[in-house]
């Protein structure tokens, strides 16, 4: 694929914005529209955009971590967040929260951690599929 100068310049500024936006979507999901799923999708499209602008090899380097690892990590985090309440004698996946509020993040609890897992799995899957399709092209 040919890369356009305009696109790759724009992407430089867009990527951080998109990634911050995806994180923002993820965090606000608890009280307002958003959440791990859509956050992960937005992050994935950020990487897809980067790949279109700079090529897929560059995008892979830029991501630093193999998407399959993200999927595994996400599943593990989701699972562990469910196991935590079992140590307190509660059922699997019961939400537990800290009493106190934290700055920026707001409330912190196991459902939020679970959502991080969802975020990572979605990001991992989307980028994995996009990258493997792109690899086929060569």
């Amino acid at each position: 694929m040919k890369t356009s100068v305009i696109l790759s310049t724009a992407v430089k500024y867009l990527i951080p914005l998109l990634l911050i936006f995806s994180f923002f979507l993820f965090l606000r999901g608890h009280n307002e529209p958003g959440g791990g799923f859509v956050g992960g999708l937005v992050a994935a499209s950020a990487f897809a955009l980067f790949a279109i602008a700079n090529g897929f090899d560059e995008a892979k380097k830029f991501m630093k971590i193999e998407p399959i690892m993200l999927i595994a990590l996400g599943l593990l985090i989701a699972l562990l967040s469910g196991l935590v309440p079992m140590f307190f004698g509660l059922d699997f996946l019961t939400g537990i929260w800290f009493e106190k509020n934290f700055p920026i993040i707001g409330k912190l609890g196991t459902p939020l951690v679970f959502d991080i897992g969802v975020y990572l799995v979605v990001l991992g899957i989307s980028t994995k599929i996009i990258f493997s399709l792109a690899e086929e092209e060569k």
Binding site: H30, E32, G34, G95, G109, P111, D115
Partner: peptide, 16 residues
Amino acid sequence: AKGKNIVNVILVDFRA
């Protein structure tokens, strides 16, 4: 579940 967004609360807590 301490969340105002019902959809998301269902996803990550009630029906996690």
